[in-house]
């Protein structure tokens, strides 16, 4: 699928990447998403990171639990449609008090064209909160870097699951004409 026109020309993925480097992130689990495509490429190209493509998002929750058990920090990149796939696995994060940093690009929200994205997109904050995850939404590109930095600190210093929800407003409209 083609991505929208804005994401490749914006700098917020570079800012997130810098934060992930500064945080000492070694394992990057992801399910591909257009909004995360630039960040995924940056992580894949970095020799100090292991970027792992998943078949479904819940694999990433389990993988990052293993990473932490082994002494490494990780991050999970996904789209809001994948949040629902993670719910039962998040029970382990809460029960074992494991840190978790996840960066969620939102769909079914700002200017959505595909109605099938709405149920999960609109349900994402409540679903995460019900699973014990601290939710930190960000609506503007210039706030993303500091929000991810704060979320990483909260996750790894307080041993808690934290999700940064990156608004569809930041990612821009998907172009359906190409």
């Amino acid at each position: 699928m083609k991505t929208d026109q804005q994401s490749s020309s914006t700098i917020w993925p570079d800012q997130i990447f810098r934060v992930l480097k500064d945080t000492g992130i070694r394992q990057v689990a992801y399910v591909p998403d257009a909004g995360h495509s630039k960040l995924i490429n940056l992580c894949r190209a970095d020799k100090s990171m292991r970027a792992v493509s998943l078949t479904t998002e819940e694999e990433g929750i389990a993988m990052l639990a293993g990473a932490w058990l082994g002494g490494e920090r990780g991050v999970l990149l996904m789209q809001s449609s994948g949040v629902g796939n993670c719910i039962n696995m998040l029970g382990m994060i809460q029960e074992c008090r494991l840190p978790l940093l996840t960066l969620v690009t939102m769909r079914g929200q700002w200017g959505e064209f595909n109605p099938w994205q709405s149920p999960m997109g609109q349900g994402t904050p409540a679903a995460l909160e019900n699973a014990g995850v601290i939710v930190q939404p960000v609506d503007h590109a210039d706030e993303i870097g500091e929000t991810v930095a704060a979320a990483a600190r909260l996750a790894f210093s307080s041993y808690r699951p934290v999700a940064v929800l990156i608004s569809q407003r930041v990612i821009g409209f998907k172009n359906w004409s190409k």
């Binding site: 070694r26 792992v52 389990a62 993988m63 293993g66 082994g70 990780g74």
Partner: peptide
């Protein structure tokens, strides 16, 4: 299995 993968990559 995926916990095993994260652990194996870390160690």
């Amino acid at each position: 299995a995926m916990i095993g993968l994260g652990l194996a990559l870390a160690q």
